[in-house]
């Protein structure tokens, strides 16, 4: 088994004085997906923001390939190789779809996106349209495309399937599989259990800001997950 690419240990953080994430630990190796599950309000998105540097870690460490990164700002973490697709406001609404994809590409070339356009033709059709005019689900497709195509070694996806049709969720799963095969490490926050079951190698289930269940997919069956997901 290859050494973990991204490791976080004992991470604590939140908003104002309120700790939302309490001593959560986990890791993900190249070519693997760690799925973070849990009901809403349990701290999953906050964990992502801690990993990406939007919120400071009050305690704990985050390491990329063994280097401590918990003190770095967001752009520096991106520069070291972490891509991020946020749950809310996932695209630049004021920019065209094309600009959303090519904003950081020196050549403005759309060729790297051919695979994605084949699966999500809507994006190719709306290239010149403002991303703000897309539906919520379409924005998620655009965001995922942008994030995966950055080709970085680590990708954080926060609820990529929210508002997306099942057919496209399957496409997403396939694209994620392709990235896995290329050696990318992914952490995916999900609400949709069926999607999570398709892509996950490991689960990390959170409740009230803490880890309540963690382990490889093969060792955790649906019933044990449902205990923590259903009302």
């Amino acid at each position: 088994m290859s050494p973990p690419r991204l490791t976080f240990a004992g991470v604590v953080g939140g908003y104002g004085t309120a700790a939302v994430v309490r001593e959560v630990s986990g890791q993900v190796a190249p070519g693997e997906v760690l799925c973070v599950l849990g009901r809403n309000g349990t701290g999953k998105t906050t964990l992502m923001k801690l990993l990406m540097g939007y919120l400071p870690c009050w305690q704990g460490s985050v390491q990329l390939d063994g280097t401590a990164i918990e003190a770095l700002a967001t752009p520096a973490r991106h520069a070291l190789g972490i891509s991020y697709c946020p749950q809310e406001r996932p695209v630049f609404d004021d920019l065209s779809v094309r600009d959303n994809l090519t904003l950081m590409r020196p050549d403005r070339d759309l060729a790297p996106f051919a695979d994605y356009f084949a699966r999500f033709p809507i994006l190719a059709r709306r290239l010149e349209q403002h991303a703000g005019t897309l539906s919520g689900g379409e924005k998620k497709l655009l965001s995922l495309t942008r994030g995966l195509a950055e080709g970085q070694p680590v990708i954080l996806l926060d609820e990529p399937s929210e508002g997306v049709q099942w057919e496209n969720i399957l496409h997403m799963a396939a694209l994620i599989e392709e990235r896995k095969a290329a050696g990318t490490a992914l952490i995916v926050v999900e609400q949709n259990l069926a999607f999570a079951e398709r892509i996950a190698d490991h689960y990390l289930v959170m409740d009230q800001g803490r880890t309540v269940l963690v382990g490889p997919r093969g060792e955790i069956d649906r019933a044990r997950l449902l205990v923590h997901l259903q009302v």
């Binding site: 939007y54 967001t74 752009p75 991020y84 600009d99 950081m104 942008r146």
Partner: peptide, 15 residues
Amino acid sequence: KAMVGNRELAEAVGL
């Protein structure tokens, strides 16, 4: 325009 419209995302894409 990207920075003005969505600063958090701009940071995330490395702007």
